[in-house]
């Protein structure tokens, strides 16, 4: 019993609903065309195919595309040691999907996190409320139109938020540089990203030219200067 066999069994059960299995690096992904039928598919996946462990449910914000959200379910079976991934699209107008807590109880908190971070509601969820942020927080932080620094909000006696000072950040590693110095997290200048260089590295060459060294004085330098 391999993942691809189980995926094909699921596909034959719901042939109109599920796409052909896609394989990528030995991981099988199935796409559902209708998020409303997730309940039926999951009951079969757990009951007949033995996927008794819901590893994770997560959501993707395809900002700018329609449907806007994608729900991703990761399944695993302790009996047959096989993983499976199922994707279902949810449009922004609807922003709703049926819950799978009746199939796996662990979906409770996963769906609460999706509601908190992305704003997708789950019908028939036993306790749908925010889990990481607090009740009454007005935004959904993991949406692509929400800035990393956050937005100011105020709930007296509960919590407040303000915008974090970014100071040129976020400081992320820049992929594809020729060495670790060029990949180091620095202030990013978008024009230099595509050139495969790190603006800070170029500035280092300017500093070398003008000061005779590429970095500030370290402890050894200051000691020899004074002593």
């Amino acid at each position: 019993m391999t993942s691809i066999d189980l995926a094909k069994q699921l596909k034959t059960r719901f042939s109109d609903l599920i796409s052909e299995p896609v394989e990528f690096r030995k991981e099988i992904t199935l796409s559902l065309s209708d998020a409303e039928r997730i309940g039926d598919v999951m009951v079969v996946a757990k009951g007949e195919l033995g996927f008794d462990y819901l590893v994770d449910i997560t959501s993707i914000d395809n900002y700018g595309e329609d449907p806007r959200f994608t729900l991703v379910y990761h399944l695993y079976g302790y009996g047959h040691h096989c993983h499976l991934r199922l994707k279902a699209n949810v449009s922004e107008e609807k922003s709703e999907a049926p819950t799978v807590t009746t199939v796996w109880r662990t979906a409770n908190w996963h769906e609460r996190e999706i509601f908190d971070m992305m704003g997708i509601r789950f019908r028939n969820h036993p306790d749908l409320r925010r889990i990481l942020m607090w009740e009454g927080y007005p935004y959904f932080p993991l949406r692509k139109d929400f800035p990393l620094a956050g937005r100011p909000s105020e709930m007296p006696e509960v919590a407040f938020t303000s915008t974090a000072p970014m100071a040129g950040g976020p400081f992320v590693t820049i992929a594809g540089g020729k060495d670790t110095i060029s990949r180091e997290p620095r202030v990013r200048i978008p024009e230099t990203d595509s050139l495969g260089m790190n603006a800070r590295v170029e500035r280092r060459k300017d500093i070398q030219k003008s000061h005779g060294r590429a970095h500030g004085p370290g402890p050894v330098d200051s000691r020899t200067k004074n002593g």
């Binding site: 942020m133 935004y139 932080p141 929400f146 620094a149 956050g150 937005r151 974090a164 976020p170």
Partner: peptide, 12 residues
């Protein structure tokens, strides 16, 4: 100062 977490959820 908020450390490495310059984000919406961490007090700076």
């Amino acid at each position: 100062t908020g450390g490495m977490y310059r984000s919406y959820a961490v007090l700076q």
